[in-house]
């Protein structure tokens, strides 16, 4: 009963948030009145140098491309080091992933610029490199967390290694892997915002334009857009994570 009501509440809140976000992206003029209060000397209240929709799509595109590439590579490495053939690399892979996450995303971006030049490329590289780590770490945690007895039983019943991976280990590790992807993509959405300082087209442009022109309305508009994008993605992946967990602990 309570769980059901809570679920309805959650769905309702998510619906309102999605609708609000859609209005902010598709019809930003709707917020002109309240934002105008923050401007001074007749500054424009709504960012007009580019369409908000185009910036949002570009932002999401960069994040999606980098995160999906990171997902594929991190999964592949994570699977490799948990197989007998790759087990020797596991301790080192863990140490590198652990230390790698101390590398701040902004520093990753700063280092990517000299290597790739300005534009979307350094952002893509930085998002990809930084996005790898949480997914990789969680892939290992998820696969290692599968009960050895379950794997033993599967092997004893005549499943091949590949089949055990596909039908037993990966489905059981899935919620943990999604959790890692969730962390990765949230960090990426934030870092892509900073990427606007090196010429990546995205929502960060609005904030940076606001900071440069001392226009609080821009800063607020951009900040709320990015924050809502991140929160919505987080909610969506959280939902997927719970779904993946469901059959076992409903």
């Amino acid at each position: 009963m309570i769980a059901q009501r809570r679920r309805l509440l959650r769905i309702g809140a998510a619906g309102i948030a999605v609708a609000l976000f859609a209005v902010m992206v598709l019809a930003p003029e709707a917020f002109e009145r309240p934002l105008a209060a923050l401007t001074k000397f007749g500054q424009p209240a709504i960012y007009d140098r580019d369409s908000i929709l185009a910036l949002t799509l570009s932002h999401m595109g960069i994040v999606a491309a980098a995160s999906l590439a990171a997902l594929v590579i991190a999964l592949a490495i994570g699977i490799f080091v948990t197989r007998p053939a790759g087990a020797q690399y596991l301790p080192l892979a863990r140490a590198v992933a652990n230390l790698g996450q101390t590398f701040p995303p902004i520093a990753m971006l700063a280092v990517a610029v000299p290597l790739t030049g300005f534009g979307a490329r350094p952002t893509l590289v930085a998002l990809f490199a930084y996005g790898l780590l949480p997914i990789f770490e969680n892939t290992i945690a998820g696969l290692k967390g599968v009960s050895p007895q379950v794997v033993e039983a599967a092997r004893g019943m005549g499943m091949t290694g590949r089949r055990i991976l596909r039908e037993i280990e990966l489905p059981l590790a899935l919620p943990v892997i999604i959790a890692g992807f969730r962390v990765s993509i949230i960090v990426s959405i934030g870092t892509a915002t900073i990427g606007s300082t090196v010429g990546a087209k995205g929502l960060g442009e609005i904030i940076i334009a606001g900071l440069q022109a001392d226009n609080l309305a821009y800063v607020l508009q951009g900040g709320v857009l990015v924050a809502m994008l991140a929160i919505l993605v987080d909610l969506g992946l959280g939902f997927l994570e719970r779904r993946a967990r469901q059959p076992r602990s409903a």
Partner: peptide, 21 residues
């Protein structure tokens, strides 16, 4: 707190400006 953590840093810094100003 997790929702706060989700807000990207540059947005957060920006959002802090308005109320403090």
């Amino acid at each position: 707190l997790s929702v706060i953590q989700t807000v990207p840093s540059i947005a957060m810094f920006g959002l802090m400006m308005a109320p403090l100003a």
